[in-house]
Design a protein around this nucleic acid. Structure first.
Lengths: 191, 191
DNA sequence: CAGACATAGTTCGGAACCGCAAGTATTGTG
DNA sequence: CACAATACTTGCGGTTCCGAACTATGTCTG
């Protein structure tokens, strides 16, 4: 099933469309395949293991992060999960309402909030993670063990590079142009 | 900036947490790094090139797909873009309202709708894509040319594998258990 | 040709999601 | 103690997102 066009066909169409334009095909293929793979894998995991527990992807990722690290301050949870703090507030609320997560104040710094799994949350993750990992094995089936390692290592380098240099790069790109205000978002109380 | 924990630290914490649990670490690292990389790259691209045109990631992907393939039936656009057809309806509406995309009926089959870029959309993509590609080069900076190729090729294999075998796998996993209804989503008009 | 079935797209409910601004507390500092 | 900085929440406006229900259209079959 799947689709009308294979990846190979898409890449050929790009070549045809952009034949005249000078562009960096290898990097384009690498980046776009990262997103294709991420989407396909996410969909598979959502519709296999996650669905049976009625967890969303983001909900699972948040639980996973907190599970791995134990108690964790919310700001770091958001960062590790790759979502904004505002979103985390809502997701955490959902997970709390299901009794999987709890929120604690920080003992010494009253500004901080700390997340921790409830016993139910721990139990769920202990049950769910092996199944999740089985599907990670399934999706990695076409890779040799050494290839999986090499893949992970290359991606790690890309992430590290972005963490180290991404912000500066974006600043350089913007230069002195001021970003237009976003189409949506809360407005200043009063001009 | 960036984070509290590096990927290496995270993998170490996983090892500590899951030391006793038998699991497949290589595949886990590969899959989770795919998602980390996809998120980081997406955020970089959104906050550099896309932001200046006030395009969302999904909006850009849809434009890109239609741009590459020319006129395209909506069902295929959704599939190529990795979103559901319901989502595409909304996204296409947004892009239409900005004058970047147009919707045409199919001449012989009244059920079909076809998407095509407007001249403004063509112009935008011709301007935007080279910039986008430059950032793809930037994020791929830590990869040798041969590595980028190998990365793309491995991911392509994973996607192909999922397209070919994912659905069957999910069916096998479900077995005869019936999925619980989703927490959200439209309900039957009447029990 | 009518009724059954299939296919394509839209609508809708509920949740996620972002970025920003503003609000609330708390902590650190001169 | 005033004041800045930090951490989180809240709320806004908009978008995205899924999947099931629904609508409209086409196709197959008796």
């Amino acid at each position: 099933m799947s689709g009308h066009h294979t990846i190979a066909e898409t890449e050929k169409a790009v070549q045809a469309k952009l034949g005249a334009v000078p562009l960096h095909r290898e990097q384009m293929a690498a980046v776009s395949n990262i997103h294709r793979a991420a989407t396909a894998i996410r969909q598979h995991l959502e519709n296999s293991v996650l669905r049976t527990s009625d967890l969303t992807w983001t909900g699972f990722v948040v639980l996973w992060v907190v599970w791995i690290w134990g108690e964790m301050e919310t700001r770091y949870v958001a960062e590790e999960a790759g979502i904004s703090k505002g979103t985390l507030t809502g997701v955490a609320k959902t997970l709390q309402s299901r009794g999987l997560l709890e929120r604690l104040g920080h003992p010494t710094d009253g500004r901080l909030a700390v997340l921790r799994l409830t016993p139910e949350g721990e139990e769920l993750m202990a049950d769910l993670f092996p199944k999740f990992n089985e599907e990670e094995v399934f999706v990695s089936d076409p890779l040799e063990s050494s290839e999986a390692q090499s893949l992970a290592e290359m991606l790690r380098r890309m992430v590290t590079h972005l963490e180290a240099n991404g912000e500066q790069r974006r600043l350089d790109l913007r230069g002195d142009t001021v970003l237009p205000p976003r189409r949506s978002g809360r407005r200043a109380k009063h001009g």
